[in-house]
């Protein structure tokens, strides 16, 4: 057969595409469950790390079950929607809906009899999505810990938001100002406190060369937390009435 004829070339290309497509589709679907399991456990690891528990992936599930006492899917008024499994909520699709239809996942954790509120975050960096989790202490103000991740930020610059030294800067910062207004945390380039000793300035030191990613983190924190305000109000009233 003439290898240079058009017919042969088309035939070859078509069968090549068929073979390749079915091989890849088969591999992808047979490995899918393993990959999803990894992603699910990584999510547990991330949630746990905001409350100061570092664990490997194999143990994440059991430790998660020990410490996470409740997962809520809140609506925009702060009521729990029990028809929704909060852990399965995908923020990337949730965030595109109108606020009234969104459900806002919230994880409640207890470590050594101290309770924490963990809020998933999602926003935009320079190139693509950034996301993370932020844990508030029981005063619903002070940050216990934060963890960030990204899809495609610049390696060495924006991608540094996943580094421990950056995430550690958020610890003990306050998200409400002294008059009780939600201000979030500003990833600031004009910070006079590069070592983040002042924990009441609502600012952490930004990363040089990662301005847009840093602004993305700032926006993501305030934007997401705003939706939880009704719930926070209720929770504070409940705590006050208990005391």
């Amino acid at each position: 057969m003439n290898r240079d004829s058009n017919g042969y070339t088309f035939l070859f290309a078509a069968s090549m595409v068929l073979v390749v497509a079915s091989t890849l589709a088969f591999t992808a679907s047979s490995l899918k469950s393993l990959q999803e399991e990894n992603v699910r456990k990584e999510k547990m690891q991330n949630i746990l790390s905001t409350i100061g528990i570092q664990t490997d992936r194999d143990q994440a599930e059991s430790i998660y079950k020990n410490h996470i006492t409740g997962t809520l899917a809140l609506d925009h008024l702060g009521n729990n929607d029990e028809t929704v499994d909060a852990f399965q909520l995908k923020l990337n699709s949730e965030i595109k809906k109108p606020v009234k239809e969104q459900r806002f996942p919230l994880y409640k954790a207890v470590v050594d009899n101290v309770s924490y509120y963990i809020i998933p975050l999602r926003g935009s960096g320079l190139w693509d999505a950034i996301w993370g989790y932020i844990a508030l202490k029981s005063d619903i103000n002070t940050i216990k810990g934060a963890v960030f991740d990204h899809k495609a930020e610049t390696a060495g610059l924006g991608a540094e938001i996943t580094q421990k030294w950056f995430m550690d800067r958020f610890k003990d910062e306050k998200v409400f100002n002294s008059s009780g207004q939600l201000v979030g945390i500003n990833v600031s380039k004009t910070n006079n406190d590069p070592k983040d000793i002042d924990k009441n300035d609502h600012e952490v030191d930004a990363i040089s060369g990662a301005t847009i990613t840093g602004d993305g983190v700032t926006d993501m924190i305030i934007e997401r937390l705003t939706h939880y305000l009704p719930y926070f109000e209720k929770e504070k009233t409940t705590i006050a009435s208990l005391n």
Binding site: V20, L24, T27, L31, Q35, N38, R57
Partner: peptide, 17 residues
Amino acid sequence: ASMVILVDQILRAYAYD
């Protein structure tokens, strides 16, 4: 490209980190 995708998929399943 298909070899690379195969490797990538396998790593994601067995060596996620």
